[in-house]
Amino acid sequence: MIEWIRFILTALLMIAGLVIFGISTLGVFRFKYAVNRMHAAAMGDTLGVGLCLVGLAVSAPDFFVAAKILMVVIFFWLSAPVSSHLLCRLEIETNERLHKYMTVHEKTLAQEREEKEEEA
């Protein structure tokens, strides 16, 4: 009985993870520009891989393997932001026509809010 519960839990989490991977792959094809695509890929990087690996850890052969799988998740979540930050920085610094692809705000957010308040 308990094995079936484990199986169903694993199946649910893995299917959710696979659906999120699918949506992020769709996003990678749908969006027009590299940095927008990066947001879609970040979705698969965080929640997709997290759900898949937690689901697999539920039905791992023994306790230490499950702990190791969770360690993979933690390592991945620590390293993924660094790599996507560097990629984004590469894109921002090498692209000479940034204004074509996004709205660039020159002022900080706090300053913009103050100006809006003054206008109102």
Binding site: A42, T46, P81, V82, H85, C88, R89
Partner: peptide, 15 residues
């Protein structure tokens, strides 16, 4: 803070 911003999809810290 920068890592958390990058980890949430939809926002990336560039610099």
């Amino acid at each position: 803070l920068a890592n958390s911003i990058t980890l949430t999809p939809g926002t990336i810290t560039c610099l």
